[in-house]
């Protein structure tokens, strides 16, 4: 029996570890860079239940980080390290935050421009990124961060390139539809932010626009490290699917012929019978409310030749 090392105790990593146990008692250790679990979902009330349940069964190791040093990858903790080898490691690092040049944000680089995750950590340490904060994001993570900052007495505006669905929010969030274009500083700190063609005074800009990111492409990845989904349910599902792939008892595979990206890949085990097809642009076609449409194909009746 193999023991797996799973990088990142977010929803995907926890779900994967949990499912591995449930499928056949396969042990996995989840390593986590932070001193808390949950990652981007740590402040989302709706996922607390799942995380707490998972922690009862799964062993996590906090303040333990996977790091690339030239061509090798190591798990490093306070007093030691070990090299991570072979295909037993699954990266579940989650989203990365998009860079300013990727987003077309120009201007200066004063203090007070923070990626989303840096602010999650600040909140965890009882620190605030500023008093007058602009959150730039088009997703529910941006909204939940804005809500959390407001709860702590910060003035917050959310800038989103697209219209946001705020039905579930407890109201009161000031949302401007537009693009952040330019940042100006004063004395070394953010002073104002150009949104479309208007200046918004603020001391902080938080970037909550994301991209899937697997820092270790040599390892298999689950969750938001590979799938652009904003639905926690799908993140959890991806962990389950990967667990099924890893355990794969029948050893039989099928190949799905498709132009669309398929998670966990075009070649899937017959046992799993589920794949995820992330496609952002067809939401209207399927009339699903989420920004990232993810379709779960039940492969029961969907047979293609085995190659």
């Amino acid at each position: 029996m193999v023991g797996y090392t799973i990088i990142g105790a977010g929803l995907a990593g926890l779900s994967l570890a949990l499912e591995l146990r449930r499928l056949g008692g396969v042990e996995a250790e989840v390593i986590e860079y932070r001193d808390y679990v949950g990652g981007i979902h740590s402040i989302m009330p709706e996922t607390k239940g799942f995380i707490n349940e998972a922690l009862k069964e799964v062993s996590t190791r906090l303040i333990t980080t996977a790091v690339r040093i030239n061509d090798a990858i190591y798990a490093i903790w306070r007093g030691g390290y070990r090299r991570l080898t072979s295909n037993v490691i699954v990266a579940t690092g989650g989203f990365r935050v998009m860079t300013l040049p990727e987003l077309g944000i120009y201007g200066e680089r004063p203090a007070g421009i923070y990626p989303h995750h840096a602010v999650l950590d600040m909140l965890h340490y009882d620190l605030l990124p500023g008093k007058d904060v602009v959150v730039y994001g088009d997703n529910q993570y941006a909204l939940s961060l804005a809500r959390e900052l407001m709860r702590r007495g910060v003035t917050v505006r959310v800038i989103s390139p697209t219209k946001l669905d705020t039905r579930d929010m407890d109201g009161g969030i000031d949302i401007i539809v537009g693009r952040v274009r330019y940042v100006k500083g004063m004395g070394g700190r953010v002073e104002k932010i150009l949104v479309n063609s208007e200046w918004v005074a603020a001391d902080t800009l938080v970037i909550s626009m994301f991209k899937p990111f697997n820092p270790f492409p040599e390892f298999r990845a689950v969750g938001q490290a590979v799938i652009e989904t904003y639905d926690p349910g799908i993140v959890i599902e991806s962990g389950k699917i990967m667990a099924g792939e890893l355990v794969n008892r029948s050893g039989e595979f099928m190949v799905i012929d498709s132009d669309l990206p398929i998670y966990p890949g075009n070649r899937v085990s017959r046992d799993v019978r589920r794949v995820i097809i992330p496609c952002r642009d067809v939401e209207s076609w399927l009339m699903v409310g989420s920004t990232s449409l993810v379709m779960m194909l039940q492969l029961l009746n969907y047979r293609t030749p085995i190659r």
Binding site: R96, L100, Y114, P115, H117, A118, D121, H124, L127
Partner: peptide, 12 residues
Amino acid sequence: ICQGMCLGKAIK
């Protein structure tokens, strides 16, 4: 590449 996703921890 993440341009400071670690800054919260780093500042502390």
